[in-house]
């Protein structure tokens, strides 16, 4: 602060501080604050807003636990369709993250340590070009590809691999299409942090490990993965958060039996017009995701600073 004052003088420093404060307050904090506050108030007809019934409570949050019970190994849990969708959303976002990681790790290694620089340019271009197409179009493309009696089924049928057309999006409790779509949509957010982490690894270390007798998987396990951990963490957090928060891909690629928690929020806000309830669910999702991500980071011993790298 003093440094700033000395360098730019009072007026300029004042302006910079004011603009930063304005940005933070009006564009970051206020909108959320308003939504946060309204998430604790009941959804009321316009005449009752601000009236005696408009009190703060956790009711909007607790609706997720309302109604039906769910039995599991003799225990009884309060299980609603919302809670079930919530759990599956987290679960399949994790799965998306894991699948992306498994696909990107070898690819990133190949790009960082195997391919020649000349080949790399072409390779990168091929990877990035699909990103120029909008997310909507990409999701639609998969929608068409995976359709019942769509191109994928037809091709496999003609090749004699399968006898009957397959409902590709119906597998995994109806989430297979979503999984494919989300992985495709966000995989590059995994690839680039991983690639960055691996390029910063000195090739001599890989060779040193090999020279000391390590088999290829030992080299990966003891040298390359530990070095890439910040990249893995940053890619995983990004993909997970994007997947949890996605609405376009799940809407297009889910099956009749599945839905995504963002869709539940959307329905509450726009179909039932219950903005308070929608806000409550949105915060619930955010909160749980933050806890989940920080928990995972703690478990794998990565710090926030590592990820920012």
């Amino acid at each position: 602060m003093n440094e700033l004052l000395r360098r730019y003088g009072k007026p300029l420093t004042g302006l910079a501080v004011f603009l930063t404060a304005f940005w933070l307050l009006f564009l970051v904090i206020l909108p959320y604050f308003d939504m946060f506050a309204s998430s604790f108030r009941p959804y009321l007809p316009a005449v009752d807003v601000g009236g005696p019934k408009d009190v703060y409570s956790l009711n909007n949050y607790l609706t997720i636990f309302e109604n039906a019970d769910w039995h599991f190994f003799g225990f009884t849990f309060p299980m609603t369709i919302h809670l079930w969708v919530f759990i599956l959303t987290i679960l399949f976002s994790c799965l998306t993250t894991i699948v992306s990681l498994l696909m990107c790790y070898p690819l990133a290694y190949f790009m960082a340590k195997v391919i020649s620089p000349k080949g790399l340019a072409t390779f990168l271009l091929l990877l990035v070009v699909p990103l120029w197409v909008s997310e909507l179009l990409r999701a639609f493309a998969w929608f068409i590809v995976l359709a019942f009696k769509g191109p994928l089924s037809l091709t496999l049928q003609n090749l004699g691999v399968i006898a009957e057309p397959i409902r590709w999006t119906w597998g995994l409790w109806g989430y297979s299409g979503v999984l494919i779509g989300l992985t495709y949509a966000y995989i590059l957010f995994m690839l680039f942090p991983l690639y960055n982490a691996m390029t910063s690894l000195d090739t001599n270390q890989i060779e040193a490990a090999e020279d000391l007798g390590a088999k290829w998987w030992q080299t990966h396990w003891r040298v390359i993965i530990p070095h890439s951990k910040p990249g893995i963490a940053s890619g995983s957090v990004t993909v997970f958060m994007l997947a949890v928060g996605s609405i376009l891909v799940p809407t297009l690629l889910n099956s009749p039996s599945s839905s995504w928690f963002t869709e539940v929020i959307y329905n509450r806000m726009f179909d039932q017009n219950d903005w308070n309830g929608g806000a409550a669910y949105a915060f619930l999702l955010l909160l749980v995701c933050i806890f989940f991500v920080t928990g995972m980071m703690r478990y794998f011993r990565v710090g926030l600073a590592d990820i920012a790298k």
């Binding site: 000195d202 001599n204 270390q205 060779e207 040193a208 088999k215």
Partner: peptide, 19 residues
Amino acid sequence: GPNKRPTAMIFQNLALFPL
């Protein structure tokens, strides 16, 4: 392969494992 030869190399930059 290098992991099967009875050799051990000391690299120009040492290549110790930093972690």
